[in-house]
Amino acid sequence: HHLQNRWVLWFFKNDRGRAWRDNLQQITKFDTVEDFWALYSHIKLASKLSAGCDYALFKDGIEPTWEDARNKRGGRWLISLAKERRHIDLDRLWLETLLCLIGESFEEFGQEVCGAVVNIRSKKDKISVWTQEAENQKAVLHIGRVYKERLGLSTKTIIGYQTHADTATKSNTVAKSK
């Protein structure tokens, strides 16, 4: 069963001795449902990764970096998870995110989606969906609404969208949400 897009799974392991970009590795590419499950069943669950590691799933041709041509004007819908939720919700929410991407759940705004990242950190884990144009409000809001619903988040849960530019230059710990 072919997917609309070919996707690349990336892995990031924080090794302070090396340049940031060298810690980011392409694992493999896939463009069928069957290959997705073969990969997913083969790798460690996100909740089992050590602190400082990330998984990223991005469309082939887009790197999971702010600098990539298709990311630099974009931003991300950000889900922050308190530490105790790692072993309860993290894997379920990350898998649902992956299914939204490969299943093209954002309809006509799917082409605005670049990819998704899960950051495993000692304080707070984060899951985010990266979109290409932060100023494309219609697309950003549609993607956010569908995503929040798919994750089954309660209506009172607030999720924020941050431009990568803000995230990259944030002085305090929390970049402002648009």
């Binding site: 449902v33 299914l99 490969i102 299943g103 093209e104 309809e107």
Partner: peptide, 18 residues
């Protein structure tokens, strides 16, 4: 053009089929 969309239910069923 056409868009290839997979519902989550279908994707999860594919996971369990041999």
């Amino acid at each position: 053009g056409t868009r290839i969309i997979y519902e989550r239910k279908f994707l999860l069923e594919c996971k369990n089929s041999p």
